[in-house]
Design a protein around this nucleic acid. Structure first.
Lengths: 214, 214
DNA sequence: GAAGAACCGTACCGTACGGTACTAACCTGG
DNA sequence: CCAGGTTAGTACCGTACGGTACGGTTCTTC
């Protein structure tokens, strides 16, 4: 509920427990993430788990919140934006996005949230959206707005433009990774993919290399 | 393994059972998909389930195979391909893709396969890829190749072009739906999305409205 | 119409997991 | 040294599920 401001979060000890839990989840999937297993891996008692996090769902929520707090997106302020620097910033953003989405922990948490999506309450998916995509989407939105203000981009709907950028970068790679396909992402592959995507995006929304529209 | 040719598949009675199981999965998620629940919903005995499908995983595999057999993509032969007809075919493809991905059963099966992706064997994800995306990707590939042969499209890597098309159509909509976001997809929204995506794709890969490249 | 197979419904077993209770050890402050 | 609180470790309980076994019923086949 209180996702903004400085919510108390958790103590260092509790964060260490959440780290163990994340590791457990990454290694063995949700089936391996039992309360007894977490307690054993973290050298704490189940009673403490329930005291700190309430119930199993509380542990899962805390794991998502903790992980999100670790990968906080860095707000980069682009002072003077030229065509080249905009492209460079977009490429960096694309690479960061690919790196985050392909990370072990991100994949495991997304699998977890998706698996629980059908359950009734299940705020996990919403949390992941709020803490993950929203943040990185805001970063991209700022970048796109700056590009538009600098006269380098042209679009009406910022959300739609971001959607196109996202689609060009990720395509179906994320889903394939979520399904367990052993995609071997060389850093070089990601760089190439990021550049191609950004070039295509600039072809669609850029004002510079756009020659004319009949 | 043997996804082609006329594999035995299952008897009508068994298909009816799989229908019940799919319904159960759609309604209640994986937690509701117990062997006892399937037996009760389908008015059959657990013993028959195990006789027909081996074990619980066999039921899941059979469900995927059965559902895939129901949504066989129709191979459309485009005889004379003009710029307008290519666009129309692409728009239809995009709409079909959105319809399939947003379907209840598709979402439920994808959630199921993703949830099991971390387990060891877990061929479910691979099955879904093979039976789902492969099929629809082949249809798109044929369309794109036809467009290229007609001089309407220009691309080197067909797989990459398909990836771009997919990304433009789907963006992050699929993931958001998988996470449980209550996206209300009006048919009109999908049509608009399909047209915008195809227009953008043609901007990138089409040869007609492309004026010049500096 | 009888023999046999297939099948439904149910009862049963073993296990695993979420959650709770209890005890002993370990701080921490006076 | 002692009192109060916190936590690890473990034992325990209820439940739910996967898988198996069995009696009774229906369908097929001759």
């Amino acid at each position: 509920m209180s996702s903004l401001s400085t919510q108390p979060e958790f103590s260092p000890r509790q964060n260490a427990v959440l780290d163990s839990a994340l590791r457990l989840l990454v290694d063995g999937g949700e089936r391996a993430l039992t309360t007894a297993g977490v307690a054993r891996a973290a050298n704490c008692s189940k009673e403490s788990l329930y005291k700190w996090f309430g119930d199993r769902d509380g542990i899962l929520s805390a794991m998502i919140g903790y992980q999100a707090s670790k990968v906080r997106t860095l707000e980069e302020r682009a002072e003077t934006l030229t065509g080249e620097s905009l492209r460079a910033h977009l490429v960096v953003f694309a690479r960061d996005l690919l790196d985050v989405l392909s990370g072990d922990v991100s994949l495991a948490l997304n699998r977890l949230a998706i698996g629980q999506a059908s359950r009734d309450g299940s705020h996990l998916g919403q949390m992941l959206q709020e803490r993950g995509r929203r943040q990185i989407g805001k970063r991209a939105g700022g970048l796109l707005d700056a590009g538009r203000r600098a006269g380098l981009l042209r679009f009406d709907n910022g959300e739609e433009a971001y959607g196109v950028l996202y689609g060009l970068i990720v395509t179906d790679l994320h889903l394939r990774m979520l399904l367990g396909e052993d995609v071997k992402p060389t850093q070089q592959d990601f760089s190439r993919r990021a550049e191609r995507a950004v070039d295509a995006f600039l072809d669609l929304y850029g004002t510079k290399r756009q020659t004319a529209k009949p």
